[in-house]
Amino acid sequence: MLTYKFDWGVLWRQPYGEWLLQGLWLTIQLGALAWVIALSLGILFGTLRSVRFWPLRIIGALYVEIFRNIPFLVQLFFWFYAGPMLLGKTLQFKINQISGLNYYIAIFGLGLYTASRVAEHVRAGFASIGHGQYDAVLSTGMTRLQMYWYVMIPHALRLIIPPLTTEFLTIFKNSAVAMTIGVAETTFMSYKIDEQTFHGLEATTGAMAIYLVLGMTVVKLMDRIESRFRIPGLMSR
């Protein structure tokens, strides 16, 4: 054992304590904003995968397969380094001038990636609704679009709240990857504290505690949402 002097003070001493809190605030922003994208695109592509018209089903399947089978880090680097180049020289120049570009790309990339996972849950939700309900809804005279919007999507979403909770937790954990493109979230900050003080062990341990508290808070929040939207008469936990 090396003579290592623990210095837990790096967790609250200024400016390091403040860095960690700033990191937490960014982690929350990344997770929450990316979740908005993930949920909307996830519902869209998950629904596309269960419609009757096969070209739409293929679009949904393509999206899910592409985004699920490429590591998130590679996706993020693609959007960050290659993304602006795809848009042509003039636009690329303009985009690279945006301040905080890495922050927006992290939200966008994390949202697109998580959407593929949400889409899979949405599809599973549709699959667990019996066929009789489709016929019943259509027999009331609703169009297919109305059927999805007013009946099927709300029903499927309520069925899949537990796996969506897991995804919501995962999105905060995956947001840590944004540090690789320089977004100063919690993990980035703990690494930065190490660079300044060489007390990376204490800093990363502190960051772990932050993620644990964040995770527990999210679970509490989702428990409330789950009991609020539980479908009466179904088995509950």
Partner: peptide
């Protein structure tokens, strides 16, 4: 409940100690 990336860092810091 912890990001893998943070666990990788943590081990990288704890192993030398």
């Amino acid at each position: 409940n912890i990001p893998l990336i943070l666990v990788i860092f943590w081990f990288f810091f704890v192993m030398p100690i």
